[in-house]
Structure formats: C-alpha cells, structure tokens
Design a protein around this nucleic acid. Structure first.
Length: 280
DNA sequence: ACCCAGGAAATTC
DNA sequence: GAATTTCATGGG
C-alpha cells in the first residue's frame, strides 16, 4: 500500500477495488452520509473524517498519519487483495459473478465490535433509513461530543447504566430493552467481544446469542461487520429470498471462506435489483 | 388503510 | 418442538 501524508490529508494510491457508495451505503454501516460532491463523511473510533475517490486515489480528509496507520487503513481493509478474492468467489455461481460486476468495489469494513452489535440489534425488523435515524439519536443522546452535531458512539459502560425508558427519545420501540441488555452483558464481561475474533465460529454465535434480542442473524452480522469473521453468511429476508429463488440447492457453506463478502454482494445486488425475483 | 422493513421473543398449536 | 403472532415505529 502506497500513501502520501500531507497536512490533514492522506492519499492512498491505486485503490481500484473500493467503491465508496457501494461500500458505505450497502447496509453494513449506519453512520456515513454522502455529500453533494460524492464524498462521504462519517464517524468511527471517536473521529470524524471525510473520504473521497479521485480516479484510483483514495483521499482521507481531516485525519493524520498516526490515525491512518492506527485504524483507518484497517477500517477500510486496505491491506486485503479484493481483486483476488472477488475473482475467486465469482466462480462460485454465475449470478454472483453478475453481482460483482454490477455493484463492484464492495469491501467489508472493520467496524468496532460494540457498535456493530448495537446497530444490528437496532436493525431487526427495521429499514435502513430508520436504523440510521435511531443510531444517530443514540449517539447524540449518549455519545461524547466531538464537535457541533458530531458525537462518538456511546460506550457499553454508559449504556449499561440506563433503563429502556431512558432510550425513549430514540424511538427504537421494542428494541430498547435489547440494547440495554447487550450493553450490560458486554460491560460486565458476560460477553467478551474481543474473544470472538479467534473463537470457533459456532461457539462465537452462541456467545452473542446469550444477549436478549440477538438471534443467529444479528450474531452473524456482528461477527462479519464488527469482528471481521468473513466466513459469516447472515441470512435476512433478502438473502433468504435470494437463496430460495436463485441459489437453489446451495447452502452458506458452499460460499467458502469468503462467504461474508459474497453475501454482501448478493444482498446489495438483490436490494438494488428487486426485479431479480420476479417469477423465476 | 395496508404492507413492509438486514428478526427475535412470546404464545399457541 | 414446530408454526404463528406480537412487538414499536415510520416510510411508501
């Protein structure tokens, strides 16, 4: 990876396998918004940055070399060869090959584990627009202020001390008590998120499902997007539909060690092309 | 008014 | 145990 640090900018050269819109607006994260000039602004690790593409350069604004090397390079998974991976998974099924061509440049972000857990608890039986609204209010109410209208994601410790009534301003509905239970079990060590990085996969799912409001799907999303367990293959309504109508006779195991990346291509492709499911 | 949304708990059969 | 209902909220 070749990069240039200049003032508050980091420019990474030759990033031809990252599409910002397909990556940041594909339902894996909920704290990024697109600006009028096609750049994106978001918050992670307690910092707000703006990212943009200029040809094959990826430009990070409002950061520094230390933060870039400490976490942004990992967050955008810049040390992984996505060309090689997509080349491999494209061979699995012709429709997956189509998906990779049509919605190219999706990467799996390495989000913070607790944020992934809470945001995907909020995601259940919900739509992406409303998920973003609830997450935004969660940060505004209980995160730390970074600058005007910009807040960090709240800590498990902070949320663990609250009651569902305290979350009423979020308008999260029945999910409020799930958020509290997750925060409490993470805060008191009953669920050790960091341990899930190396734990055997099925065991890691079980650990997360100790939390009220976490079933297999939310557990798999937490593992995929928060702990970089890219063998995870979350099955939501869109994915189940795709498995029934398109990937007939296939199981998640058939998608291999990069199943999570395949899953995200299928999910995003399905959602942006709902006509795929018309009477096949 | 009705249906759906990156589901899971509670209830019923 | 497997199938169905309910849960809270907002957009289309």
């Amino acid at each position: 990876m070749e990069y240039i640090a200049f003032k508050n900018l980091i420019t990474i050269k030759n990033v031809d396998t990252l599409d910002l819109k397909n990556t940041l607006d594909c339902g894996q994260c909920f704290r990024w918004s697109e600006n009028e000039d096609k750049s994106f602004t978001g918050v992670a690790f307690g910092r707000q940055i703006t990212v943009r593409k200029n040809q094959n350069d990826l430009i990070l604004e409002n950061t520094n070399e230390n933060d870039f090397l400490s976490f942004w390079a990992e967050y955008f998974d810049l040390n992984t060869d996505y060309k090689k991976i997509t080349g491999e998974i494209a061979k699995i099924h012709p429709v997956l090959n189509d998906a990779i061509k049509k919605v190219s440049g999706i990467r799996i972000l390495k989000q913070e584990p607790f944020e992934a857990l809470i945001t995907f608890i909020i995601s259940q039986n919900n739509n992406i627009g409303r998920i973003k609204g609830i997450v935004s209010r969660l940060c505004e109410c209980f995160g730390d202020k970074i600058c005007d209208n910009v807040y960090t994601f709240p800590t498990a410790k902070k949320l663990s001390a609250l009651s569902p009534d305290d979350l009423q301003p979020l308008r999260a509905g029945f999910r409020a008590r799930y958020i509290i239970d997750a925060a409490q079990k993470v805060n008191n060590g009953e669920v050790d998120l960091e341990a899930l990085r190396t734990m055997e996969f099925e065991q890691a799912e079980k650990e997360l499902m100790k939390i009220i409001g976490v079933g297999k799907k939310v557990a798999d999303c937490t593992l995929l997007f928060g702990l970089y367990r890219i063998e995870a293959f979350p099955l939501d309504v869109w994915m189940k539909r795709a498995m029934e109508k398109i990937f007939t006779d296939m199981t998640p195991k058939d998608f291999g060690e990069y199943a999570g990346i395949a899953q995200q291509y299928i999910f995003h492709y399905s959602r942006t092309n709902p006509d795929l499911f018309k009477d096949i």
